[in-house]
Structure formats: C-alpha cells, structure tokens
C-alpha cells in the first residue's frame, strides 16, 4: 500500500464580497480534483508554474489548508476524519520544508530552540542538547550553530536548519515546497544532495514541489505536472524528458533553457501563447486548451480530459484527448511567428 494516497482532492478558496455582510461570490479553485499516490521511500516531484496550485496541494496534504473535497490517506488513515488531537499527533510522522528558509524560522528563536520545539511539542523529555547536536550533524552544521539565530546564517545554512527541524521527529513523509529556489545557484546542489543523502539514511518519503523541472527530475522517481489546479501528466522521471505526452509538458520542457549553446541552437522551442488563465474561472473542457499549440477543433474546448494511461507509454498517465496523436506525431503544434501574448492573457483581477 502507498504511504500517501490523495483522492479527488479539491481546495477552493471562497471569494468574498461585502464589508459587513460577507457573501461568497465565487471560488478560486486552487486545487481542483487531484489524485496522487506515493510509495514508501520514494520521491514524487510536483512541477508547475506559479498559480498552478502545487503549493496549496502540498499544504492541503498536510491538512494545513482546509480541504474542500476529497481525501488524503496517510498510511491507511484518512487524515480528514481525524480529530484535532489525533491529527496533531499524526503530524509527528509528516513534516514540511519551506521555500524561504529565513521566513520559515522564527527570528526570535535560536537554532537549539527551533530544533527542540518539535521534540517538546510531542512530549519528548529534555534535555534536548544531544538530539540537537545529532540533528545539526545530520544536516552538516557545526554544533556551535545551536546557540545562533537565523539571521546570522547564510541562505544555505538556514535551509539546513529548516531541514533539521523537519527531520527532528523522525518523520516518514517530508513535503518540500520549493526547497532550493530561494538559494544561490551554487548552493542549490548542496541542499539537493543533502536531501538525497538524508532520504537514504533515514528512509524518508518525499514530495518535492518546485517550478524548476531540472531539479525536480534530478531528485524525483516520479513527476506529476500540474496546470491550473489539476494534474495533467504523471510519469517516471527517467522518461519524462524523452517522452512527454501532454502538450503542456512538451511546452514546459522546451521552454527550460539548457546551459549548452550546442543544444540551445538546435532545440525546437514551443512558445506558448498568453498567460495562465484565472483559477477563479478556469476554461471549460481541457483547462489548457486556451494556450495549447496542439489544440483540435473538437473535444478540447468542451470535454474535460481524464488522467489515463495510454498504450504507447506504459506507466505514464496523461490527461489529454489527443495524447496518442501527439505522441505519434500525427498532430503537430501550430507556431506563431512573433511570440505573442494574446489579449485574454491579462491577469484577472
């Protein structure tokens, strides 16, 4: 059985109007029907651009956002049905690593206080000094760091503190939301390697959420690509780059610059039109059809595609009506001469 099972998860944020008497006039469908599962000891990457709902999904899995619909099953237990006290106890087994290491640390807490807080919260008896030193050692910080405060560290070191806090209770699952994107390029690899090393040592299961597909691919076993609140493709990391099936994945991959002129000069680049539509009013049918370079005259605009496995690529799930044809090359992308942003690409207010 999978350690984590997400079924039909929806997180809608109500849009309210009125000052005294608030009424709900609509909803931002941040996460709109997501199914995922992660096996113990493996890493699932979730990629997508800002506004696709990936961070909300991560928080909703940990029950840090109110779930509108659907369920999150962790090790056989439906988290949504747990009483608050039981949920708090459950948190011991699932932890989170944040994007901005400085913002995620209380500026008034010393590192030893940061690291002993989870222990104290879950009723472990002090003194915690030994465990704090152990944790610092695990994440590659000197034990002298214990008495320092977050603002005294560099970005990479702070993220190590954040990771140490996340592993303090020996969790089984760690959700890392953009764990390296706030760091300098030369530091990112240190943190990625640390995460991998800890996974091996401690048998952790990861969900890594990021916009950087290259980093996600490096660290993940499987990758889920999100667009506007829904998963459009799930694939093993090894084959995603060679065999992307969903037009959005294809475009996303082709948009990522590769540090090699030889590759860059001959690459076929698919430039998407326009911007992400508003999640308060997603397009009908396939959510991607307004920007899709492979869009067809039928089905795309009025029929919601479901995530399905297709015969040509086993182990690969895709939510596109025309995945087979895109895969075989029967449908080719239309191309605009000038990379245009069309009028409906304006951000909805």
């Amino acid at each position: 059985m999978s350690l984590l099972e997400v079924r039909g998860l929806k997180v809608h944020f109500p849009i309210k109007k009125g000052i005294v008497l608030e009424r709900t006039v609509g909803a931002v469908r941040a996460v709109d029907g997501v199914d995922l599962s992660v096996e113990r000891g493996r890493t699932l990457g979730i990629v997508g651009e800002s506004g696709c709902g990936k961070s909300t999904l991560g928080r909703a899995v940990l029950q840090l956002e109110p779930v509108t619909e659907g369920s999150v099953v962790f090790d056989g237990e439906d988290l949504g049905t747990l009483k608050p006290a039981a949920m708090r106890a459950m948190r011991k087994r699932m932890q989170m690593v944040f994007q901005d290491p400085l913002a995620s640390l209380d500026p008034r807490q010393s590192v030893s206080s940061v690291l002993s807080e989870p222990l104290r919260t879950h009723g472990e008896k002090g003194p915690y000094d030994k465990r704090v030193r152990e944790l610092l050692d695990l994440v590659g910080l000197p034990s002298t760091a214990a008495n320092r405060y977050p603002h005294e560290f560099s970005g990479g070191q702070r993220q190590r503190v954040g990771i140490a806090r996340a592993i303090a209770l020996n969790p089984e699952l760690i959700i890392a939301d953009e764990p390296v994107s706030a760091l300098d390029v030369s530091i990112q690899a240190q943190v990625v390697n640390l995460l991998e090393e800890l996974q091996q040592r401690l048998g952790l299961t990861y969900v890594v959420i990021a916009h950087d597909l290259a980093v996600v691919r490096h660290i993940s076993d499987d990758i889920a690509v999100m667009y506007l609140g829904a998963v459009v493709e799930v694939a093993p990391s090894d084959s995603l780059y060679d065999e992307p099936l969903h037009p959005y994945t294809i475009a996303l991959l082709s948009a990522i610059p590769i540090p090699d002129p030889e590759v860059e000069d001959v690459r076929e680049r698919i430039i998407l039109r326009g911007d992400l539509p508003s999640a308060a009013d997603p397009p009908p049918g396939c959510r991607f059809h307004t920007r899709c370079p492979f869009r067809q005259a039928t089905r795309c605009h009025d029929e919601v595609p479901v995530l399905r496995e297709i015969a040509v690529a086993p182990g690969h799930q895709v939510a596109c009506h025309w995945a087979e044809q895109v895969h075989s090359g029967a449908i080719t992308p239309e191309r605009a001469a000038v990379p245009a942003a069309d009028a409906d690409g304006a951000a909805a207010v």
Partner: peptide, 11 residues
C-alpha cells in the same frame, strides 16, 4: 511561514 511551520509541527 514560521507560524505555518509551527502548525505543521503540531504546536
């Protein structure tokens, strides 16, 4: 984020 972090710890 640090308040969220504390919540995720079960504080």
């Amino acid at each position: 984020d640090y308040a969220l972090a504390a919540r995720s710890l079960g504080v």
